[in-house]
Amino acid sequence: MSRHADNDAHLLDLATMPRERMEMLLERADHFARGGTVPPALEGVAVCTLFFEPSTRTRLSFQLAAQRLGAHVLGFDVSTSSASKGETDVDTLRTLEAMGVRGFVVRHGGDGAVRALAAHARPGTVLVNAGDGRNAHPTQGLLDMLTLRQVRGPDLSGLKVLVVGDVRHSRVARSDLQGLRTLGVRDIRVSAPANLLPQADELDGCTVVPELDRALDGVDVVMLLRLQRERMVDGLVASLEDYHRDYGLDARRLRLAAPGAVVMHPGPVNRGVEVTDEVVDGPQSLVLRQVANGVAVRAAVLEALLGQPPAPHWVT
């Protein structure tokens, strides 16, 4: 695979991002989140949101971020494009490159699909992974790390973090775990049904605690995951009621965590399945802050990768 498919030119995942780069991106995003000036760094640059899967939060926040940076933003709807006539993903990319599009924000249902596309991109083209299959969702991981830093300070190493739910099918979980490890979090717990856990090597550095009540003991952060029913084979969850009984977060269970523990969820939330209304709408929920931070993080990423000239702390 060519060097151009590396994270040097694109943002494909968080697995190899050095801590210094991650912290610089988070500091820039925090500047934007706090109302700092957003420069017209992408003035004259064409950015396409190339989404082969549905999205609300990710797509719209990338569009807002690109617009605030001065970019020309093109939306791609697979249902009304030539992709619906059989055009390959690579031909779609090349067609848009020929029109002068430099930046592509790509969501795709296939594991590793964005990296595969990046291998075919022209020099000077930038791809940002907006979620590919079960593989990665790096900007979600970054916005979750930003949200934690805002409420807990820049040093996250002493936090006790619990990830709950469908880790096996979750690209968000993979990127969050990469971000937590990179930023030095030492106590990472995972609680899920056995058949919703990934391979053991993906949980390196984590402690698996199958019983949710025990896993919640004293944690500072509860990161809930959406039940990825569209990526499951039948039978992995007996019923939504059973899942909620065993792994749903309600007020009683939240009291098992540390005082002031915060609750996160990438959305969309399956209310009454992963979490109850009183928790997701309650004072300990950071769900809407995560949404707000998505625009700031995505602006920081686009500025760093596509700004003129590229930010020296990012592109090497």
Score class of each variant (00 low, 15 high):
Arg298Gln: 05
Arg115Asn: 04
Leu64Cys: 11
Tyr243Phe: 14
His265Arg: 08
Asp8Leu: 01
Gly307Tyr: 13
Asp6His: 13
Thr92Ser: 13
Gly267Pro: 07
Val38Thr: 15
Pro259Phe: 10
Phe32Glu: 00
Arg174Ser: 11
Gly267Asn: 00
Gly153Asn: 09
Met24Ser: 14
Arg271Ile: 00
Gln228Lys: 11
Asp176Val: 14
Ala130Val: 04
Glu230Phe: 07
Arg168Ser: 09
Met223Ile: 12
Glu303Ile: 01
Val295Ser: 03
Gly103Met: 06
Asp242Met: 13
Met145Gly: 01
Ala192Asn: 06
Gly158Leu: 03
Pro309Asn: 10
Arg19Trp: 04
Leu225Ile: 11
Gln178Ser: 14
Pro154Gln: 14
His265Pro: 12
Met145Asn: 04
Asp187Gly: 09
Gly124Asn: 10
Arg189Ser: 11
Thr276Ile: 01
Asp234Cys: 00
Arg252Lys: 07
Ala121Thr: 09
Phe76Ser: 04
Ala41Met: 02
Pro123Tyr: 00
Gly75Tyr: 00
Val297Arg: 01
Leu288Asn: 04
Phe32Thr: 04
His108Val: 05
Leu12Gln: 10
Asp187Met: 04
Leu177Asp: 03
Ala33Trp: 05
Ala118Trp: 12
Leu93Trp: 09
Arg186Lys: 15
Ser285Val: 07
Ala46Arg: 07
His10Tyr: 05
Leu64Ile: 14
Phe52Ala: 07
Asp220Leu: 06
Gln199Thr: 12
Arg174Val: 05
Pro266Trp: 03
Val78Ile: 08
Val73Met: 08
Asp246Gln: 13
Val315Trp: 03
Arg229Trp: 12
Pro18Cys: 06
Asp13Asn: 15
Gly100Glu: 09
Leu162Gln: 00
Ala46Ser: 14
Thr49His: 07
Leu60Arg: 08
Gly165Ile: 01
Gln150Val: 04
Glu274Ser: 04
Asp246Arg: 14
Leu197Ala: 02
Ser157Thr: 14
Gly100Thr: 11
Arg57Val: 02
Cys206Phe: 08
Thr316Pro: 14
Glu274Asn: 05
Val164Trp: 09
Glu97Cys: 09
Phe104Pro: 04
Leu148Gly: 01
Leu305Glu: 00
Leu159Thr: 06
Thr95His: 12
